[in-house]
Design a protein around this nucleic acid. Sequence first.
DNA 1: GACAGGGTCCATACGATGTAAACACGTCCG
DNA 2: CGGACGTGTTTACATCGTATGGACCCTGTC
Lengths: 238, 238
Amino acid sequence: MVDGEPTGERAGATRRRPGLSRAAVLDAALELVDRGGLAQLSMRRLGASLQVEAMAIYRYVRSRDALLDGLVDRVMDQLYADPAVLLQEGDDWADFLRRVADGVRRVARQHPQLFPLIATRPPAAPWVRPPLRSLRWVEGFLTGLQSRGFSEDGAIYAYRAFASFLVGHLLLEVSAKGVDPVPTEPTGPPPPDVDLSAYPELQRLAPRLAVEDLDEEFAHGLEDLLERIGERARLARP
Amino acid sequence: MVDGEPTGERAGATRRRPGLSRAAVLDAALELVDRGGLAQLSMRRLGASLQVEAMAIYRYVRSRDALLDGLVDRVMDQLYADPAVLLQEGDDWADFLRRVADGVRRVARQHPQLFPLIATRPPAAPWVRPPLRSLRWVEGFLTGLQSRGFSEDGAIYAYRAFASFLVGHLLLEVSAKGVDPVPTEPTGPPPPDVDLSAYPELQRLAPRLAVEDLDEEFAHGLEDLLERIGERARLARP
DNA sequence: GACAGGGTCCATACGATGTAAACACGTCCG
DNA sequence: CGGACGTGTTTACATCGTATGGACCCTGTC
């Protein structure tokens, strides 16, 4: 049983493989999810895409759930590392929030299949009210605002309002782009459009509901939110 | 094989069972999900809870996914049937939206395990921008607003802003309540609280982040939103 | 150079899952 | 009485997550 190539590969295991790593695993998983959706992410498939048996993955990840958490954290953390997002010396808090919002939105559109998880997975610290994952991120947010003159209450309020605004908008934005369809078809024909005859108003307004001014709407909502946050901050710290 | 009771029941099938029905299936599924979470909803378990073999369920539901969609629709539709939510003759649009918001929030808290699905599942008509499921519901929303003097654009804008506000707030609210934990423990001890030493600001503000003034915050955000919607409507229809 | 130790990956196995297909039974209509 | 039909059961299969134990390679020590 020393030779004879049972898997079609040189059975001799580790040979000159670049070697797995947690990062490699996460990246491969992320790619699987991005095209194909969450359902495509099985340990065996992930293994195959890394040219490795499924069980090898467990060296780098405790379980499939942990893998998912890892994905979420990785994506969020890479956002945190994005220089275009970090708060910079010269800008005020509103600029900071705008940049963060843009960054998160970019993440949502890059990984639409993953985003629902980001908004949905039980967070590491559930008592952090709006649990936007990545504690590091929350920390940065809070200190960032406070260093920009926010009171503690103001920062907390801002964090909550901001997080829920982002999640709400982006989740809907993402779920509107066909997120779930089976991956066998790269982009098969959309499901045979539903019968709308029972919903006249919906039918009549359909074109306009489908309209794509999401950019404008997002921006508008964000400015609105910033104004609200600013007001509140002013109240809390006269 | 004609007798001998393989399942512990009278094998003779249909006998005097109340008989399954789509409604019964959905109700049982909903109960399974409510206590135990989505992961507990397997066809076999659902079958068992209906005293039926798993495959019997497929007479009433095309697949597990369809089951989930059915759950979402059922919950949303029952909201639509709620007399406390329907718009009534005397009230203006703001009252209507307030009541809808309360209704959806009630749903979210009654079925916290299901709510992420509501916000997440690919909608029947993906082109309806914020896809709040239940087309019937959207229809009611649009006609309701328009009959209250909203322009078409105003109604559409209101729908979008309203839906994303609701989803954002409620999703975070729900996911903060431990949603996912394994169901074996009715309410086991919360996961061994994360180590926060790396995040001083977070640690310092933790008590306040955990604070439970969600009611107030929700109400505040809602009023704010209503104001914004009203403004926009006024612009569109001078 | 030999050899022990440990890290990495493989092979195998088990129970659970979603669901297709064929079948059994009870009811009702002719 | 006989078939059609609807409802639930049986059996089967592919796939999943993962526990366990063994095979291989690399490295460090003598």
